[in-house]
């Protein structure tokens, strides 16, 4: 029983890390600019399709395709930021919702047009497949890899945010945008860079997600809810919050399914509602 509890914890944590990668970018940009970007998962989907194209059609190794998934999502997000998002910084939340939902619709249609409507396969190298036994418990190698990548990324993000000049500017902009502007920080540029980084991470998340949850043209819709849940529960603009919220949701989802399968889908929503009623600003939210 203890062994299986450990297994459930492990699987849940790995799933949570996936949610973390997919949502951390949105949390930071929402916290900074209050920009409601419902198209965040479209960038994740883009990253996924880039990896599929590179590995299946061009024969790239899986690992080599990951940086490109990140880069392409980041680049496309910069272009969109310039052309569309920038015009709506001062606009109402509702207008931002409508714009970004429009982008989701378009991205879903474009994905269906190019890639068709089937599930996209991804070929993992053999060293990422199968499972290894640790402490009498068989753990999926890919899940270990996923956790490793996420922890490295989290460490880099936190370090960059705490110890670099740019990180300080980001923190200032999240805490008090007006004051930051007053101090001469180019908030728009900081935002654009953060936005690109966040979208890039989503792209990477999308690429890593294929093996666990699959990828098709509707991905941008399917994961929107989960990403919003992580952002809201974690608290806006908080990397630590997203990390904790994502692990919590991943683990409780997995544990619920293992121990109380009859509760099934209820649990994750129930946990979210309960947490938000307890802390409306999210676990680590300040505003």
């Amino acid at each position: 029983m203890i062994a299986s509890a450990f297994g459930v914890l492990f699987d849940g944590f790995a799933y949570g890390m996936l949610l973390f990668l997919l949502s951390v970018g949105l949390s930071v940009t929402l916290g900074m600019m209050n920009f409601v970007n419902l198209a965040h998962c479209s960038f994740a989907m883009l990253g996924g399709f880039v990896t599929v194209t590179l590995t299946n059609d061009l024969g790239w190794p899986f690992l080599a395709s990951l940086p490109l998934a990140f880069l392409s999502a980041a680049l496309v997000s910069i272009a969109l930021e310039r052309v569309l998002y920038r015009r709506l910084y001062g606009a109402s939340d509702l207008a931002q919702c409508l714009l970004t939902i429009g982008i989701v619709f378009v991205s879903v249609a474009v994905a269906a047009y190019i890639y068709g409507t089937i599930q996209q396969p991804v070929n993992l190298p053999s060293y990422l497949r199968g499972s290894v036994a640790i402490m009498g418990q068989s753990l999926g190698v890919y899940r270990l890899f996923l956790i490793g990548v996420s922890i490295v990324i989290t460490a880099v993000l936190v370090a960059a945010l705490e110890f670099t000049r740019f990180g300080a500017q980001v923190r200032a902009a999240v805490d008090n945008q007006r004051m930051a502007r007053g101090l001469g920080i180019d908030v728009d540029r900081v935002f654009a860079v953060t936005f690109a980084l966040g979208s890039g991470l989503a792209g990477l998340g999308g690429a890593l997600a294929i093996e666990i949850v699959g990828l098709d043209h509707a991905f941008a819709f399917t994961y929107l809810i989960y990403v919003l849940i992580v952002v809201a529960v974690g608290g806006l603009g908080s990397i630590a919050g997203s990390f904790v919220a994502a692990s919590l949701l991943g683990i409780s989802d997995m544990a619920g399914k293992y121990y109380f399968p009859e509760l099934g889908a209820f649990l994750i929503y129930f946990v979210m509602v309960a947490l938000l009623m307890w802390r409306p600003l999210g676990l680590f939210g300040r505003r």
Partner: peptide
């Protein structure tokens, strides 16, 4: 029937850009 999402999405984007309210 397969790609109408594209057009409706474009419509939404256009409305936001040109008719903000």
């Amino acid at each position: 029937p397969q790609y109408w999402y594209f057009w409706i999405g474009t419509l939404l984007i256009a409305v936001v850009l040109f008719l903000p309210n």
